[in-house]
Structure formats: structure tokens, C-alpha cells
């Protein structure tokens, strides 16, 4: 990996500020009504003035549904992938199905899960679990196949057991794939939780707020929620990238 340059950070910032400025200018200049598109400054003002509501929604959606669901779903997918690795018959049977299911519109499960687990955060967490399971299963299975024959033969010649090979060679080699799945899942988890809230919630949560505020044409509040979602998503993603660099420091793409 080449060294970070100033332009890597500067250009995106310039671009972002440019877009925001253009947005502000268009909205104010052409007098676009705020029910269609509020100006960035209006959104910022609304954001600051409704911090308590945003926090409640954040806790309901992210802390209670997204994060537990993301952890459970990813962990389950990972464990099943290890199981599949142990039992090749299971892998041959489950992997084609997993590939198929990953392409299906799983969000459609939302009404069913709300029916099963009730209106509160349990059904949202369940939705997140279902959505995050398959990407992790597929990627972790691919990752466990990633170590080369040469390395495996070396472990064999050391007389190491299946577990030792798994822990010392194959799991580390699988980590880039696992992190890839974790990144995909971080986006899917947010989507799953928010969509599940369309099908019934207690009166809080980001999805609930967005759908009710759209109904009342309070678009500045909607955009404030979107800002929260965007910041959460980016921080989530950034943390994963940071962690990935620490864990897979040996990977060619991070070598200097």
C-alpha cells in the first residue's frame, strides 16, 4: 500500500463541500420549497435542535437491533461455515443454496418476522440476523478454502491436527474474506433494521421516524435521520477498515 497523500483526503473533502454548496445554492437560489428538498443549513439546524429524539431513535434502531443482530448473524454464519468445512457433504449441499438465498430479496421476510417476534426491537434484530447470515456463510466458506496447498502441506508435515491448522493457518488466511462479509453486513444490517420498522414498531426508531415524518412532510427531520444513519454507517465501516488493517496486516494490499 502506498503512503497516504494529502490529496487522498483533500479531494474528497473539496468535492463534498462543493456538492453541499451547490445544494444550498440551488435550494436557496431557486426557492425550492422545503417540503421537496430542505437546504443543508436547515437540516443542520433541525439536527441540532432535535438531538434527544435522534438519540432515542439511534438507541432503538442501532444499539438494540443492528449491533446485536449483526453480531449474532455474522457469528452464526461464521460457525456454520466452519461446520461446513468440517463436513464436506454439508458444504456441497449448503453452499449452492446459500449462494441462491444471498441473491433473493430477503427484506421481504420483514413482515413475517414482525409477526413472529412482535413490534419491539426483537423482530428487527431477527431481521438483521437473517440478512447478515448468508453473506458471512458464503465469504467465510470461500475464505477457509483460501490457504494454499503448499501451506497446508507444510502444516501436515509438522504433524499438526485439524484444529491447529485451522487456528494457525486457515482462519488467519480467511480473515480478508471475513472482513469483506462484515463490511457488507454492516450496510445490510442498517437496511434490515430500518425496513423492518416499516411493518410496525413502538413509537421510536429511525425507520419509524422516517416514515411518519414523510407522512407529515417534515423532510428536514427525515434528512436529519438520514444524516445520523450516514454517520453511523460510515463510522461502522471506518472501524471495520481500521480493524481489518490491524488483523490482516500481512495481506499484500496493505504491505508497503
Amino acid at each position: 500500500m502506498r503512503k497516504w497523500q494529502l490529496s487522498d483526503i483533500l479531494y474528497p473533502i473539496i468535492f463534498g463541500i462543493g456538492v453541499l454548496a451547490l445544494w444550498q445554492a440551488v435550494v436557496k437560489g431557486f426557492g425550492v420549497p422545503p417540503v421537496l428538498l430542505p437546504a443543508p443549513t436547515d437540516i443542520a439546524a433541525k439536527f441540532m435542535s432535535s438531538l434527544p429524539i435522534l438519540w432515542v431513535d439511534f438507541v432503538q434502531t442501532v444499539i438494540r437491533a443492528v449491533i446485536p443482530g449483526w453480531i449474532i448473524g455474522s457469528l452464526a454464519g461464521f460457525l456454520v461455515a466452519i461446520l461446513c468445512d468440517r463436513i464436506p457433504f454439508l458444504r456441497r449441499g449448503l453452499l449452492p443454496l446459500g449462494n441462491l438465498v444471498a441473491a433473493l430479496p430477503i427484506v421481504g421476510m420483514a413482515p413475517i418476522l414482525v409477526m413472529w417476534f412482535g413490534f419491539d426491537w426483537h423482530s428487527k434484530a431477527a431481521m438483521v440476523v437473517v440478512m447478515t447470515f448468508f453473506p458471512m456463510l458464503i465469504n467465510a466458506t470461500a475464505g477457509l478454502q483460501a490457504s494454499g496447498h503448499l501451506e497446508r502441506d507444510l502444516m501436515l508435515s509438522y504433524g499438526s491436527s485439524w484444529w491447529q491448522t485451522l487456528l494457525k493457518l486457515r482462519l488467519p488466511a480467511a480473515m480478508p474474506f471475513v472482513f469483506n462479509a462484515l463490511k457488507i453486513n454492516s450496510t445490510l444490517a442498517m437496511i434490515g433494521a430500518i425496513v423492518a420498522e416499516f411493518f410496525g414498531t413502538p413509537t421510536m426508531g429511525m425507520g419509524f421516524r422516517i416514515s411518519t415524518e414523510v407522512g407529515r412532510l417534515g423532510l428536514d427531520m427525515v434528512w436529519a435521520e438520514i444524516a445520523v444513519a450516514a454517520i453511523t454507517g460510515s463510522v461502522f465501516y471506518g472501524l471495520l477498515v481500521f480493524l481489518e488493517r490491524r488483523v490482516t496486516f500481512w495481506h499484500p494490499s496493505y504491505r508497503r
Partner: peptide, 24 residues
């Protein structure tokens, strides 16, 4: 250099959540 990070960032926003607003 400028667009790529934003394209990636745009996908961390749950776009599906914005769907109702876009439609309205």
C-alpha cells in the same frame, strides 16, 4: 480521487430507508 470515497460512503447510508421520501 474525489468521487470514489463518496460513492463508497453513499452505500453506507441505508438508501432503502430514504425510499419513502424519494417516492413522496
Amino acid at each position: 480521487k474525489s468521487l470514489m470515497p463518496w460513492i463508497i460512503a453513499s452505500q453506507t447510508i441505508p438508501i432503502l430507508a430514504i425510499a419513502p421520501m424519494v417516492i413522496v
